[in-house]
Design a protein around this nucleic acid. Structure first.
Lengths: 119, 119
DNA sequence: AGTAGTACTGACAAAGTTGTCAGTACTACT
DNA sequence: AGTAGTACTGACAACTTTGTCAGTACTACT
């Protein structure tokens, strides 16, 4: 069950968005761009996310080659996730997105854009 | 009824994605970045889109300040959509996204990334 | 012995997004 | 007179994504 819909679009924008898209993917990448983390650590660092959704997103990001999954076969299990070499090529793009998003938020808060219809 | 979900996230990435996100928004912006178009023209230039969805996406993009809507009050009606000054600040970001997406598609097609699970 | 912790899956409900269909008011065409 | 075109709305079905809940197997702690 995919977390993002635009499975294999030919449009490059959609192809990129299919990797990023998903309720929590941006946040996950953001956290992991600081440092690799293990599953539970990541979960605690993202308020509101459930374990189920975290794991689904992680699995997709791993499938897309963005994240690396390193598991120690121990008990209790310990799995570390980190951004792969390929994943790092995505980070500058995210920074561009983020920069625009930041100024967009400012505009919205300053009220110079009409607020979106409530709910 | 919103076309995109992440209504007013504090995360800049989500704030930006909420503007872009929606099944057809990327394509719509792409078309309009070439030249302004009227509704029906736009619809015909995007295969697969329905009039209903086109109009919903257009309305959201107008609400977000990305597009400009210019209507002649004539019969039959004639409405032109174009990218606003603010919308143009988004275009370089889209180009960055697009560039990454293009190389991602290449990688997927060359098979060096595992294909996503079918359906 | 009971509780919490690890990383994860399956079944399913709740929300959210997209698509379908019909309808509006008026004109221009055959 | 019938048909097609314009831009758009409302109701609602279909599909996708997200969230909830329970359960797994095993250890470490009180």
């Amino acid at each position: 069950m995919p977390v993002s819909k635009k499975e294999m679009s030919e449009c490059p924008i959609d192809a990129m968005l299919s990797v990023i898209d998903g309720r929590w993917k941006g946040t996950i990448l953001w956290r992991l761009s600081e440092r690799p983390m293990r599953t539970s650590e990541l979960r605690r660092s993202i308020p509101g996310i459930t374990e189920r959704m975290l794991i689904r997103h992680l699995q997709e990001l791993v499938r897309d080659g963005i994240l690396l999954r390193q598991a120690q076969r121990s008990i209790p299990p310990c799995v570390h996730y980190s951004i792969s070499k390929y994943g790092w090529t995505l980070v500058p793009v995210l920074e561009t997105i983020c920069a625009w998003g930041r100024s967009h938020i400012k505009l919205k808060h300053s009220g110079s854009l009409p607020a979106r219809s409530p709910k």
